[in-house]
Design a binder for these strands. Structure first.
Length: 425
DNA sequence: CCTGACTGCCC
DNA sequence: ATTCTGC
DNA sequence: GCAGAATGGGCAGTCAGG
């Protein structure tokens, strides 16, 4: 430690101010070069004079741009064209865009679509060759060892020698109702004490897609065909509940039923759509519903980074405790305001500042905002023991005074109400 | 061996 | 994950 | 319409320090 300190000290001592700035940025991982995988694909495409589309497709299929570059260097463009889905090598998952309602999804998909329950768990991709099974997470991490009962279920329930399947793992309670997402996270990616947690938090697999079966890639087959093949290939593993319809009222009822059973909402999948690895398009739409909005007061804010440098862009949101009159933080958000609104908010908050500590400004509780969120989680971090999941500001409530914000008691009531649909550990 | 800070990844 | 912005 | 930027809560894992 001492040695490190001295090395850094001497390095900075020898640097010019500008050099020092970038040295520190590098050391603390704040370079913000704007260089992500998309640019890397472009770079590889140019470096090997290969069409960008081909590089992108290969990147999706292998989930590894480094490997694509290697293939191009060693075997040239032909190797990429020949590239298909490979067993035991994960491909990037197909992604969904958002839709507001089942009706909108039906319209977008041309009058009829397939709705499936959207479960609040973790997406997995399963590769099976005989008794060998590998399970990959959404970011293609191998999570096989964390989920022994899923591996076992696949061995027993997938009636094909080779298969690549997709599904969602959720944690379930004794009655079969879904447990809140945070319980699943105690199982997912766990490496130690798996046996012990296996008993405490049971997980369950729901399958929804089949990408490969016994030598045949299905990724270019239409959704309905893949789904049919899936239902024929599995026994004893549930598929996500599904309804194919063009009737908005029927779809809406299905949506309500999913929510009533404690699930997140629906997916809508275009009937004739191929499986497009890594693509976030309109072939798949997700439909969720926020819980009832809360009016909360901003009690502190933090300065942003990068493009939000110099702006108070991250806000602490508090509800009022009707027993003590105290404002208690239930979450933090940076979402929902436009740049212009953030600039204005910065000015207002600075005028309300009570105290500054580091990056944070504590303010007089005065500005009320309407906040949307999707769940109230049990929180080890906040004093009130609860936290909003996916909090975002939907409106600035200048018509409301801080005395009128929602109470902790109301937040707790909504928290408790969630367990009418979900299981509790 | 325990704790706290931090990272990476699930959403 | 959600939201906004710039192309 | 899309990619990219900014950053939420919670969890397991890792690492440094005591």
């Amino acid at each position: 430690r001492e040695r490190k300190d001295r090395l850094v000290e001497s390095l900075l001592g020898r640097a010019s101010p500008v050099e020092a700035k970038y040295l520190v940025k590098i050391m603390i991982g704040e370079m913000r070069t704007g260089f992500q995988e998309g640019l890397m694909e472009l770079a590889v495409s140019r470096a090997f004079s290969t069409p960008l589309e081909l590089v992108q497709k290969a990147s999706m299929l292998t989930g590894d741009i480094g490997e694509v570059a290697y293939l191009l260097k060693e075997h040239g463009e032909a190797a990429l064209s020949k590239l298909g889905l490979r067993l035991m090598r994960p491909l990037k998952p197909m992604l969904a865009q958002m839709a507001e309602s089942p009706r909108e999804a039906i319209e977008e998909h041309g009058g009829e679509t397939a709705f499936e329950y959207k479960l609040d768990g973790a997406r997995i991709q399963i590769h099976k060759v005989g008794e060998k099974v590998k399970v990959f997470s959404r970011r293609l991490t191998d999570v096989t060892d964390s989920l022994p009962e899923i591996v076992q279920a696949v061995r027993e329930g997938v009636k094909a020698h080779e298969a690549v399947l997709e599904g969602e793992v959720i944690a379930v309670g004794r009655d079969g109702h879904p447990l809140p997402f945070q319980h699943l996270m105690r199982r997912f990616r766990r490496v130690y004490e798996i046996e012990k947690m296996l008993r405490e938090i049971p997980v369950k697999l729901y399958l929804f897609d089949l990408l490969y079966v016994d030598g045949e890639s299905l990724i270019d087959e239409p959704y309905l065909e893949r789904r049919n093949r899936l239902s024929r290939v599995v026994e004893g593993i549930p598929l996500t509940e599904q309804l194919v319809t063009g009737n908005p009222a029927e779809a809406e009822r299905f949506f309500r039923k999913a929510l009533e059973e404690g699930h997140e909402g629906l997916m809508a999948k275009r009937l004739d759509s191929p499986y497009k690895p890594g693509v976030r398009g309109k072939h798949w739409l997700k439909i969720k519903e926020p819980l009832e909005p809360l009016d909360l007061v901003i009690t502190a804010a933090e300065y942003g980074y990068g493009r939000r440098h110099g702006w108070l862009s991250d806000y602490y949101l508090a509800a009022r405790d009707e027993e003590t009159g105290e404002f208690l933080v239930v979450g933090k958000t940076f979402k929902g305001l436009t740049d212009q609104e953030i600039i204005e908010m910065t000015e207002r908050l600075k005028r309300l500042a009570i105290m500054e500590e580091g990056n944070r400004v504590v303010v007089k509780p005065e500005i009320v905002v309407e906040v949307a969120y999707n769940e109230i989680q049990k929180s080890p971090k906040y004093k009130c023991g609860m936290a909003l999941r996916f909090a975002r500001i939907t409106r600035i409530r200048d018509d409301k005074s801080p005395e009128e914000v929602d109470t902790i008691q109301k937040v707790r009531k909504i928290y408790e109400k969630q367990f009418e649909k979900k299981a509790r550990l």
